[in-house]
Amino acid sequence: MFGIGLLKGLSVTMRHFIESYLYDRKPWEPRYHEEWLRKRQSVEGKGLFTIQYPEQKRKISEHFRFLPMLVYDETPDKPRCTACGVCARVCPPQCIWIQRATDEKGRPQARPAGFWIDTTICMSCGFCAEFCPFDAIKMNQEHEIPTSDRDRDMFYSLEKLLVPVEYYAKLHPSDYAAEQQERQAKQEARKQEA
């Protein structure tokens, strides 16, 4: 009969509409809560799918990458970066500039004097972090950073890029643990050799 197909389609949207109430308005369940979010947003979740941004936030993956950052171990004047330039060379849109530091006699030092990233060019590909031989450049996850001044806020220099290693460990715990393990293994191997 003409119209059956239409009604079948409308029944699907109707079911979605009803589900958004059935699964959302349970008075005994906490709303707008981590738990609520996990349930609604999961693959099995039904009904309302919306995140109540900014009160609620989507749980982003620990592997998520956005813009680069530079890691230092103890103090910001001793970054892990050695200014070897692999990141600047592998960067597909060439948005990284590095100047190597020199001592009083003009001999090059293994640390950067200047490090600039133009985030209006950066394509968030993560190659810099992937190919860095010193685990010095990593990807930040801070992504809700709208600005009204492009020149001031979107051209990152060394001061803005540097973050403590604890910050990195918090963002990417499993990557950090794997790197630490690898480093320890290397150190032990070196000890045994010695």
Binding site: W97, I98, R100
Partner: peptide, 18 residues
Amino acid sequence: HKPFPSRWPHAQQPKPRS
């Protein structure tokens, strides 16, 4: 061809030229 030497090692203070 990339990489451009102006990015490394020829970048200069105070700010590279865009």
